[in-house]
């Protein structure tokens, strides 16, 4: 019998997500708010089935860049985006692209949990319903249950699905928002400081959840907690003054960064 060993390259690729075909590719992305330039020619490859963390001081452009990926910046009239962003080789700034469809492919979770003022069930069912992902009540029920399970919230809320989502605790609300995001089966999930309003236990639950979700999704997280970036991500990009100063494997960035600005920032030395 022929025993075929996977080649060392195959093994390396399996271990290192960044060696795979990237999910999201940004090339020379610049963002202007009116006259002011917020991002300067940002280029980065974001792997699928993994977590990429964006770190950097406030106002460095990381959230601005994050919002380019689902074209949230379109909602700001004075905002102008140049350069190219592709998801699976598809240009997301192509004029023929349906932005609503794009936002179904690219889910987003915000800093403060923002459930709709509706029932827990409705919060999760809303997306699949408007995108026509289910044909029957039973099918929708299944999507809701599966999404809540994926967000590790099902056990806590299964007996009170008709209670208002706003009545949950902060951590539960954030997981509800994550359930809402995954319900439409996105490819990419953007998280903008998803834990900054949560206590350590709720934070740990979200981080555990991120670990689970990265098996199936491309996750991009903006965080101000170095430790969180170090814990949850495989790749980290350090933004400063609108450019990516350094981008690489998370372990490298936090153990032995090559750029002095990265080192100063993550060790708390920024002047």
């Amino acid at each position: 019998m022929l025993n075929v060993e996977p080649s060392s390259l195959q093994r390396a690729t399996a271990q290192a997500p960044h060696l795979q075909e990237p999910k999201v590719v940004a090339k020379d992305v610049s963002v202007y708010y009116g006259e002011k330039r917020a991002l300067f020619d940002v280029s980065v490859n974001i792997p699928d089935r993994g977590v990429m963390a964006f770190i950097g001081p406030s106002g460095c452009g990381k959230s601005t860049f994050l919002r380019c990926i689902n074209r949230m910046n379109d909602t700001i009239p004075i905002c102008r985006v140049t350069g190219k962003i592709t998801i699976e080789n598809e240009d997301i700034y192509d004029p023929s692209l349906d932005v609503v469809q794009l936002r179904a492919r690219v889910g987003m979770v915000f800093q403060k949990p923002n459930p709709f003022p509706k029932s827990i069930y409705e919060n999760v069912a809303y997306g699949p319903r408007i995108h026509g992902l289910s044909s029957s009540k039973a099918e929708l029920d299944e999507i809701v249950q599966k999404s809540l399970e994926r967000a590790a919230l099902w056990k806590e809320v299964k007996d009170r699905l008709n209670d208002p989502g706003t009545g949950l605790s902060g951590g539960q609300q954030q997981r509800l928002c994550i359930a809402r995001a995954v319900a439409v089966n996105p490819e990419v999930i953007l998280m903008d400081e998803p834990c900054s309003a949560l206590d350590p236990i709720a934070t740990a639950k979200i981080e555990e959840l991120i670990d689970e979700l990265k098996q199936n999704f491309c996750i991009i997280i903006v965080t101000h907690s170095m430790q969180q970036a170090a814990r949850v991500s495989q790749r980290t990009a350090f933004f400063h003054l609108g450019v990516i100063v350094e981008e690489g494997n998370t372990e490298e960035i936090f153990q032995n960064p090559t750029d002095k600005r990265t080192q100063d920032y993550i060790t708390g030395r920024f002047g």
């Binding site: 170095m226 430790q227 170090a230 936090f254 153990q255 032995n256 960064p257 990265t262 080192q263 993550i266 060790t267």
Partner: peptide
């Protein structure tokens, strides 16, 4: 303090 990078080293 959860030291990082050169501080960790």
């Amino acid at each position: 303090r959860q030291p990082l990078a050169n501080d960790l080293r």
